[in-house]
């Protein structure tokens, strides 16, 4: 074999290229929310089983990321934000991404069911199906509500974590699902307002393109109010404790204030200060989700340590 033949194969992927197919940044949110769901659930899970469960939930999330990149390779080539992904940049073949996604889906679902229980495995299988088939294949290119319904895929992990510990679904896991589900639209639409993205070139019907930026601002405010109601409602379940209540009241007031500011601005004002309010709302949204789940975890830890609200005071 000559050096020339090597040169023709230099597109062979590295380990990191395959890892990038799994969308590691999305995986971090999956791991965090699933871990909180697992840790706050009643009942105990052996640390090894818990570790394995989180690992396989993350792997399932990564598998759906690879399958999403396989399906969306054509539009990823068009949009600047996604052009450096492994498939459009030519590092990994589309069929390789499909094979990796399918293999990891099967491994993660079966291993999660074996390591924990059938309910958790079935929920993970449905999450992958929802993200790949319902969101990527059906909704993403057909409706501006793609982000809203597709957000369910990102909302399942805490529910799966809860199912790992309990073997079922309860009002608490549904509330954690709802928190992520209703958080997704304001989070993404705030990003869409200040990211001059090329969704229209890729023919992806983002709300900012199909209904305009004014409607997007109204929708952000509407979903923020819904989210605030749900976040406060969560406080009335067993997830609510002093830390959660303090965090939820402060964060939701700040979030509503941010959404109200966005609602009252028009494009001229926003462009004049380079979308400062939209950017700060987006940053707050990241903190919002992290602190809500962090507070749920903190209350569960305090309760297990025997620290009660009365005891704190």
């Amino acid at each position: 074999m000559s050096d020339t033949s090597f040169d023709s194969q230099t597109r062979e992927a590295s380990f990191g290229d395959y890892f990038a197919l799994l969308k590691p940044r999305v995986m971090s949110l999956v791991v965090f929310t699933a871990l909180v769901g697992l840790l706050v659930a009643p009942g105990s899970v052996h640390p090894v089983e818990g570790f394995a469960a989180i690992l396989f939930i993350a792997l399932g999330g990564g598998a759906s990321g690879a399958l999403n990149m396989w399906w969306d390779a054509d539009i990823d080539r068009i949009m600047k934000r996604t052009q450096s992904r492994p498939i459009p940049s030519g590092k990994v073949g589309a069929e390789e991404a499909l094979a990796l996604g399918l293999a990891l889906s099967g491994i993660s679902v079966i291993m999660l069911a074996l390591a924990s229980n059938i309910v958790a495995g079935a929920l993970l299988a449905f999450t992958i199906f929802f993200y790949v088939v319902i969101y990527s294949m059906w909704l993403k290119r057909s409706t501006p509500q793609n982000i809203v319904i597709g957000g369910a895929a990102g909302a399942f992990p805490p529910m799966i974590g809860w199912a790992v510990a309990t073997g079922g679904v309860s009002i608490e896991s549904i509330m954690m699902f709802a928190l992520v589900f209703f958080w997704t639209p304001p989070h993404f639409w705030a990003l869409a307002l200040f990211m001059k993205s090329d969704y229209s070139e890729a023919k992806v019907p983002m709300l900012t393109v199909t209904h305009g930026r004014k409607v997007t601002r109204q929708q952000i405010f509407g979903y923020t109010l819904l989210l605030a109601g749900l976040a406060i409602g969560t406080g009335f379940t067993s997830l609510g404790g002093p830390v959660y209540w303090a965090a939820a009241v402060v964060l939701n007031l700040l979030f509503i204030k941010g959404a109200w500011t966005i609602l009252r601005r028009d494009e001229e004002v926003a462009e004049a200060d380079n979308y400062a309010a939209e950017k700060s709302f987006f940053k707050l949204s990241l903190l919002y989700l992290f602190l809500h789940f962090g507070a749920i975890l903190a209350d569960a830890v305090l309760m297990r340590m025997g620290v009660t609200f009365g005891g704190l005071l």
Partner: peptide, 25 residues
């Protein structure tokens, strides 16, 4: 690149075997 990939896959497989062993125990 190929060596790095082989080492990566190898480590993943060893980790998977160790995890299945621990789970079994």
């Amino acid at each position: 690149r190929r060596k790095g990939r082989n080492i990566g896959v190898g480590l993943v497989l060893v980790g998977f075997v160790a995890l299945v062993f621990l789970l079994t125990v």
